[in-house]
Simulated assay, not measured.
Amino acid sequence: MPTRHRGRRAASEFEVPPLQLVAAARMKAPAGLPRAAQAIWRTTLASYPADFFRPSDAALLKAWCTAAAMADEATAVLAREGMFADNGHGRQMPHPAVGILSTCTAMLNNVGMKLRLTPSARMRIDAAATRANAAPASKRPWT
């Protein structure tokens, strides 16, 4: 039966193999994503650290990029054709692209919060980190 040494131990007993850092690869845009949405995908992923998004975020990222591309297209249509369109009976009505833009903007806000892409979501991360790193005001916080 091996004997256990009491007291100090040699540093060689505690050797740990050196840490090898591996750069995280960025996710690639999913197949079938429109070209405009692919450009938004690349820009969005390049704006954050490589390990910020996980593979489980891919569906939400795809929705984010698609909505952003559709919002850009609706904005271009409105700039070209105007906010109102003739309904065929001589009356002006809001252009259909107004509704598309509104829906896409709501989706961008909703999905952006879930992915922590919006300024308010990022502020929550920063505030949480600040509170976690702050020194306690007293040893008894309940007083």
Results as ranks from 00 to 15, higher is better:
residue 34 P to S: 09
residue 99 G to P: 03
residue 72 D to G: 15
residue 17 P to Y: 02
residue 99 G to Y: 03
residue 66 T to K: 10
residue 60 L to W: 02
residue 16 V to Y: 00
residue 111 V to S: 10
residue 60 L to D: 15
residue 3 T to Q: 12
residue 105 T to R: 12
residue 135 A to D: 14
residue 136 P to T: 13
residue 53 F to H: 06
residue 112 G to H: 03
residue 77 V to F: 09
residue 47 S to G: 10
residue 57 D to A: 00
residue 49 P to D: 14
residue 34 P to A: 07
residue 50 A to Y: 00
residue 103 T to V: 05
residue 142 W to C: 08
residue 73 E to P: 05
residue 26 R to I: 02
residue 76 A to M: 05
residue 23 A to F: 06
residue 1 M to S: 10
residue 23 A to I: 04
residue 17 P to F: 03
residue 29 A to L: 03
residue 1 M to L: 03
residue 131 R to Y: 08
residue 110 N to E: 14
residue 114 K to T: 04
residue 103 T to Y: 01
residue 4 R to V: 12
residue 78 L to K: 04
residue 32 G to I: 04
residue 69 A to D: 02
residue 78 L to I: 01
residue 61 L to E: 02
residue 46 A to H: 13
residue 124 R to M: 10
residue 4 R to M: 09
residue 80 R to L: 13
residue 9 R to C: 05
residue 47 S to P: 08
residue 74 A to C: 04
residue 87 N to Q: 08
residue 67 A to M: 00
residue 1 M to A: 14
residue 91 R to Q: 14
residue 92 Q to C: 06
residue 80 R to E: 14
residue 118 T to C: 11
residue 58 A to T: 14
residue 47 S to M: 03
residue 59 A to I: 07
residue 90 G to S: 02
residue 93 M to Q: 15
residue 64 W to H: 15
residue 109 N to D: 12
residue 87 N to G: 07
residue 52 F to E: 06
residue 22 V to G: 01
residue 22 V to F: 10
residue 51 D to A: 15
residue 129 A to T: 06
residue 125 I to Q: 06
residue 125 I to G: 01
residue 122 R to M: 11
residue 65 C to A: 07
residue 56 S to A: 14
residue 143 T to V: 10
